[in-house]
């Protein structure tokens, strides 16, 4: 769909839209909105910009003060000039996300355009995103809890050690680390020293990148910390939570139990 076709849909969707503007003439927002060239393909970021412009400048609707939910969108930072517009239309429930991504450059089709048009002018039809409750602290897993977490979410397991990097060896869990995303099962998995995470909690991003093709900006992905030392796991987990990781678990498990869990998992299915 082209931008100008979106304008036509907007025009047809509401009499009030036309009359609010200059005496019923079609709006020409191309001079107002940097992305909105009439003959260009309408991307979702452009639609968000146009919609936000209409809400603020034509319908005089106030912005949502709390756009925290928008920061759960993993691609929200892809367009820095679009971010406030995307945040508003998302939080107001006018444009939705797919999973945890907005789809910044995804084209808008006819069906979606019409839905957007309705929601701009009919507030009752807006579908606000649900508030997601994340942990504010590290949660402790029981063995049953871990088994359940693995079954449902395939969390990222981190084997944390208290000793320095120079002495860190290969993880005993090397065959057992499973993620929901594509994972290279032959990668060498090493332990991560606790001190490294305490200084730079985001270092696990580069660690994750080295072992799996994984979206390292997704701070909501479940992370399980295993360590021989409960205190080590707790301290590491707290660092991750303070750094913004929102789904952090910890546990110390009997190696026999671990063998049982992983052995069963590996035999049953390949990583997704």
């Amino acid at each position: 769909m082209l931008v100008k076709e979106f304008y036509e849909i907007l025009e047809k969707s509401s009499v009030s839209y036309r009359t609010v503007l200059t005496n019923g003439d079609s709006p020409d927002l191309s001079g107002q909105i940097d992305f909105a060239k009439s003959d260009e393909l309408l991307e979702r970021r452009t639609a968000a910009h146009i919609v936000h412009y209409i809400l603020k400048n034509i319908l005089k609707e106030t912005d949502e003060p709390d756009i925290t939910l928008a920061f759960e969108l993993k691609d929200i930072y892809e367009c820095k000039v679009c971010l406030p517009h995307i945040a508003q239309v998302y939080v107001k429930g006018i444009m939705s996300a797919e999973g945890n991504a907005f789809g910044v450059r995804k084209p808008v089709d006819d069906g979606e355009a019409k839905e957007i048009a309705v929601r701009i002018f009919d507030r009752a039809s807006r579908v606000r995103p649900e508030a997601v409750t994340f942990q504010s602290a590290v949660s402790v897993l029981t063995e049953d809890g871990l088994e359940k977490l693995i079954k449902e979410y395939s969390p990222l397991i981190l084997d944390i050690d208290t000793i320095d990097a120079a002495e860190t060896g290969e993880s005993k869990l090397k065959d057992f680390i499973i993620t929901k995303k594509e994972f290279d099962t032959n990668k060498k998995i090493t332990k991560i020293p606790m001190t490294q995470i305490i200084r730079n909690p985001y270092c696990i991003r580069s660690y994750i990148e080295s072992i799996a093709r994984f979206d390292t900006n997704d701070l909501a992905y479940p992370v399980v910390i295993l360590s021989r030392s409960t205190e080590c796991a707790q301290t590491t987990g707290e660092c991750l939570v303070q750094a913004g990781y929102r789904n952090v678990w910890m546990g110390y498990f009997d190696p026999v139990f671990m063998q049982k869990i992983w052995g069963k998992r590996v035999n049953e299915s390949k990583p997704e």
């Binding site: 305490i198 200084r199 730079n200 985001y202 660092c239 303070q242 750094a243």
Partner: peptide, 16 residues
């Protein structure tokens, strides 16, 4: 106050 060998060079993102 975070334990580090070289505070002038270590990239620290833990704000505590």
């Amino acid at each position: 106050t975070i334990d580090t060998e070289d505070p002038s060079k270590e990239y620290i993102t833990n704000n505590n």
